[in-house]
Amino acid sequence: MEYLATISVMLKATVLDPQGEAVRKSLASLGYGQVQKVRVGKHLELVLEAADREAAGALVDELCHRLLSNPVIEEYSFSLDEGEGPR
């Protein structure tokens, strides 16, 4: 089966995100003071072959852990769609 994995990688809540803070300040200077917090992360899309959904999930987990995120500072989440998904 072909799966589309949609992955989000974010800095952990305990890690300061200077980029997000800079974006928040820019929004505030544009008049959007109601935005209280901004976190900036990464969005990745992978098309992969796997026997079933469980195998696809296990593979994506492994990829995220080994390369796509850095477990020291980041956490990840992902969703899986069959085929290349709703593109």
């Binding site: 800095l11 890690v15 300061l16 200077p18 980029q19 800079a22 850095n70 020291v72 500072i73």
Partner: peptide, 17 residues
């Protein structure tokens, strides 16, 4: 070296950006 796990920790973007 940090990414390779030969030293502990990680690098973040400079606080001043």
């Amino acid at each position: 070296l940090l990414e390779a796990g030969l030293l502990p920790g990680a690098m973040l973007r400079n606080a001043c950006l």
